[in-house]
Computed example of a mutant assay.
Amino acid sequence: MKNTDRQFFGEAPGCDNSPTLCRAADKEPTLPRDARLPINRCNLPAVILGSLSYQRHPAPLKLDGVEELHRDLLRRLDATPEPGRRAEIFQDYVTVHFCLDHLEEAGFSGGPKGRAKANYVRMLRGWSFDSDSREGAVMKGWVESRFGLLPRYHGEPLRDQGGTAYQRYVEMRAQGLYGTNALEAQLDLVYAYCQYEFARQQPGVSHLTLHRGVNHLGEHERLADGPGGRPVLLLNSLNSFTCNRERAGEFGDFILTLQVPVTKVLFHCRLLPGTLQGEEEFLVIGGVYGAECAFL
């Protein structure tokens, strides 16, 4: 076990020299300024929705204009009692609304169609295959745009917006969006539909217990110690978790367990059957989280 890993369990030598990691915080940690934007496109500012208080006491998150623009979809979903049929209605609606099967109607005027065919399904599958891919950059950029949470990692740490690593992320995001068909607006609908289904199928449920297997805990940004020495972490703007603790253990020597507000779930493997396979994956929007940490 590395010394940086031992710090998560209060075992690191020289703790008196690392007050941020080893002493109980005298005040609740907040979302750092360099991890958020001053504006976003939802009903709560990033400093609130990305806070530890929000993890504990979540409120509804609404993306600007999505419900107003897609009222017809919501009416059709409301009139459909079967979840499987609602998933079909959603997929059909997105296909028709964004002309995914008829790109010429969306303004495509010739040339290679590869980028024009990029859609929300490709982004979700690309993320699941490699979260540091071009698709991953698009997904993290969507969170940045809509919720104001800046990415903290994409292939390497992103701390300096003028640095090479951050510029590489921006370039990958731009490449992923270039020539596509309202890709971020498609992701808006995916999030809105995910939240609709949580409210419809699990009314009153505010949190999910989710797990993530990791190898080196010291690579995560730890802001403070919570009750019982549990770490308070700053997560990346978007993260993969699973609802299956045993499956999480296949991906690392340590398991992080979080109580995740359902409002911060972008997508999960059961939402649209056939989109993601295996791992019982949940895509979780980042910010500050109190976590439990266990060594396998």
Results as ranks from 00 to 15, higher is better:
D225L: 15
W127H: 03
Y178F: 12
R270A: 12
A199Q: 15
L69G: 15
H207W: 11
P203I: 10
R75W: 09
E281P: 04
R270P: 00
F241C: 06
R41V: 00
F241D: 08
R76S: 14
V260A: 13
R222N: 12
V265G: 09
L296Q: 14
R33Y: 00
L256W: 07
E135Y: 08
E104P: 02
F267E: 04
F147N: 04
L21F: 13
G163R: 12
D130V: 01
L266S: 06
L149W: 07
A185M: 09
A174T: 14
G228I: 01
T275R: 00
V190D: 03
A59K: 13
C15W: 06
N3G: 00
V284P: 08
R247D: 13
A174C: 06
L258M: 12
L258W: 07
R115F: 07
G286W: 07
G213P: 05
D64H: 09
A35R: 11
E88A: 10
F254C: 08
F267V: 01
R75E: 15
G50E: 01
L296C: 11
G229W: 02
A59I: 01
L77Q: 11
A137Q: 04
L124R: 01
A248N: 07
A291C: 13
L77P: 09
L124N: 03
C42W: 04
E28V: 10
A165W: 09
H207P: 11
F8N: 13
T20L: 14
M123K: 01
I39T: 14
E156I: 00
S131Y: 13
L44N: 02
L217F: 12
G126V: 02
V170N: 05
D16C: 09
H207V: 11
P231R: 01
Q202M: 11
E279K: 05
